[in-house]
Computed example of a mutant assay.
Amino acid sequence: MKIQVRAGDTLEYYSRLFSIPLVLIADANPGIDPEQLQIDETVHIPGFRENTYTIRYGDTLSGIAKSYQLKLDTLFLLNQEVDPNNLSVGDELFIPIRMSKRVVDPKAHYDFTRLKADIEALAELYPFIQKREAGRSVLHQPLYDLRIGKGQRKVQINASFHANEWITTCVLMTFLNDYLIMLTNGQKISQTPALSLYEQAALSAIPMVNPDGVNLVRNGPPKELEKELITLNNGSADFSGWKANIRGIDLNKQFPANWEFEKKRKPKKPGPRDFLGFKPISEPETMAMAELVQKERFARLLSLHTQGQEIYWGYEGLEPLESKRLAHDFAKLSGYEAVQYVDSFVGYKDWFIQEFRKPGFTIELGIGQNPLPISQFDEIYTDIQPLLVRALES
C-alpha cells in the first residue's frame, strides 16, 4: 500500500500507526532518507492493501475507523483530500486492510505463469522482498531468487529441480507467504517470532529451478518442440513423469561430485530422467545455481524434492559436525527420517557439501509415486513448515 507523506510524518510514526515493525517499513523503502521525509513523497507500507468504502448517510470518519478497528489517522493519511466535517453520501474513501490471508493458492494449477503472478503479488504487498534473477532457463524463463531478511546467516532453499516434483514449489511459496504474513502481523511462525528470523537470517529462495520442465509436465510441450520432446520421452505424449529440463538433462545430476563415476551407471542420452548431460554444469539452470552459491557462500542449503519423507544430509564424510545436529532437529520437527549417506551422487547438495564443507540437505517431501497428488499438500506442509523455520534459526 502506498501513502503520501504529510508535514511532520516519520517512518517511526507510520510504524506505530500501522503496527508494522520499523525495520520492515525502512526495508520496503530503500530509496527514502528516513531522517528527512519529503512532503508528498510516496512511502510503501508493507502488509496492507487498499479497499474502497462508499459513504452512507450518517457516516463519520471516527465511526468508520472504529468499525474497521483502525486508528483514525490512518483514514486521514489515506484520504488527505477529504473534509471530515463535510462527508457526502456516495463519496468513496480508501480503507487500509491488513493482510492476514494468503495470496498464494498452492492447490491452483501451479506452473511458471502461476508462480510469476504470485511473486508479483507478494512483491507488491511486501516490498521489502528483494526480487532477483539467479539466471534464465533454456527457454529464457527467469529463475527467480527471492531475498527476505537481513541477518548474517545466509540460507538458500530451492524447489523444483525436477519437473514432476512441482509440488515442492507450492510448499516453498506457501511458506514464504506465511512467513511474510507473520512478519507484518508481529506473530510467530512455528512457535518462533517471525521478526527474529528476519533479523537472524538472510533467506534466498529459488522456488522453481526448472521452469521449462514444470511447464512441460503441467501444460504439455510447446508446439515448436512437440515432436522432438515426444521422441525424447520414448515416443509418449504423457509427460507427467518427466524430471529433466527441456533438453532432457536431469538438473540434479549435473554437478561435479563423483560425476564420472555416476555417469557410467546412468542413461547415455537425453530423456525424461537421470541423464547427467555430456559434461557437468552444462545447462543454463545449473550454471545459474552454481554461480549463485559460489557468489553468496551460503551457510546452509536445502533442496526440496519428492518423495520418501527422508532427509539426506551427508556426502562422502565431508559434511561438517553442524549437519548432524541440524538433521536431528529437522527429523524431530518433521517426523521424517534423517539419512546420512545414500548411493547417489552428483546432486546440488552433494556438490555444495564437497565444495564448501557447509551443511547441505536434500529433503524428500511426502510419500508415494511422483508426481505426488496435490491432495498430499496439507500433510506435507504441516510436516515441513517447522523444518524450514529451523533452517533459518541459529
Rank of each mutant, 00 (worst) to 15 (best):
I311W: 06
K264I: 15
G213R: 02
I95K: 02
I246R: 05
D40F: 13
V214F: 03
A108R: 11
V138Y: 12
E296K: 12
E319V: 09
L122F: 11
V104G: 01
F352C: 05
K71T: 08
K66G: 01
F275E: 01
L143S: 08
T42P: 02
Y315Q: 11
R300C: 06
L17T: 04
L70M: 11
H109R: 15
L195C: 08
A65T: 02
L37F: 04
E165G: 03
G8L: 03
G90D: 09
T192C: 09
A108F: 08
L176D: 09
S67H: 12
V43W: 04
P284D: 10
D145T: 00
I55D: 02
P222Q: 08
V346K: 00
P207K: 10
Q36A: 13
P320T: 10
N215E: 11
H109F: 15
L176V: 13
K263E: 12
I384S: 00
P106D: 11
N233A: 09
Q307V: 12
P221Y: 10
P34L: 10
I380C: 13
M173I: 05
L302W: 05
V214T: 06
G151M: 09
N233R: 10
P320H: 09
Y315C: 08
P267H: 02
G241R: 10
R153M: 13
Y381R: 05
G31F: 08
S137L: 04
M287D: 02
L229D: 03
D91H: 07
Q69E: 11
D27H: 08
H140Y: 10
L24P: 00
E41L: 11
L72G: 05
T54L: 06
F76V: 07
E124S: 10
S160T: 15
F161I: 13
A117M: 07
E50G: 04
L143T: 03
K253M: 14
H328D: 14
E81D: 15
K131H: 06
A331I: 04
I246N: 04
Y126L: 06
E393W: 14
F175P: 06
T169R: 04
D33T: 02
H328R: 14
V103R: 04
M173E: 09
P46L: 04
Y341F: 15
V23A: 13
G308L: 07
C170L: 03
I246Q: 06
K253Y: 09
L326R: 04
W351Q: 01
R265A: 10
G149K: 07
I20R: 01
G90V: 08
D9S: 03
F278M: 12
G360N: 04
K358Y: 06
W313Q: 03
T192Q: 13
